[in-house]
Amino acid sequence: MGNMTWDPQLYARFDTDRSRPFFDLTARIRADAPDTVVDLGCGTGALTAMLARRWPGAAVTGIDSSPDMVAAAPGDGSERLDIRHGDLRDFQPEGVDVVVSNAALQWIPEHRGLLRRWAAGLPSGAWLAWQVPGNFDAPSHALMRQLADSPRWSGRLGGVLRGGESVDDPAGYARLLVDADCTADVWETTYVHLLNGENPVLQWVRATGLRPVLDALDADAAADFEAEYAALLRDAYPAGPHGTLFPFRRVFCVGRKR
Rank of each mutant, 00 (worst) to 15 (best):
A138N: 09
P139M: 06
S140C: 08
S140Y: 06
S140V: 07
A142W: 10
A142N: 05
A142T: 15
A142E: 12
L143M: 06
M144V: 05
Q146I: 04
Q146E: 15
L147D: 07
L147M: 07
A148H: 12
R152L: 04
W153Y: 14
S154K: 13
R156L: 15
R156D: 13
L157E: 03
V160L: 01
V160E: 01
R162L: 03
G164C: 06
G164H: 12
E165A: 13
E165K: 15
S166P: 07
S166M: 12
V167D: 03
D168P: 01
D169E: 10
D169Q: 13
P170R: 13
P170V: 13
P170K: 08
A171E: 08
G172C: 14
G172A: 11
G172M: 11
Y173C: 00
R175Q: 11
V178F: 01
D179I: 04
D179E: 11
A180D: 01
A180F: 02
T183Q: 02
T183R: 01
T183Y: 00
D185L: 04
E188P: 00
T190F: 01
T190Q: 10
Y191A: 08
Y191K: 02
V192Q: 10
V192G: 08
V192C: 09
V192N: 08
L195F: 07
N196W: 00
N196C: 02
E198C: 02
E198I: 09
P200W: 02
P200E: 12
P200G: 09
L202Q: 10
R206H: 09
R206I: 03
A207Q: 03
L210I: 14
R211C: 09
P212T: 10
P212R: 06
A216E: 04
L217E: 01
A219G: 07
A219L: 06
D220E: 11
D220A: 13
D220C: 03
A222P: 09
F225S: 05
A227Q: 10
A230C: 06
A230K: 14
A231R: 15
L232E: 14
L233H: 15
R234N: 13
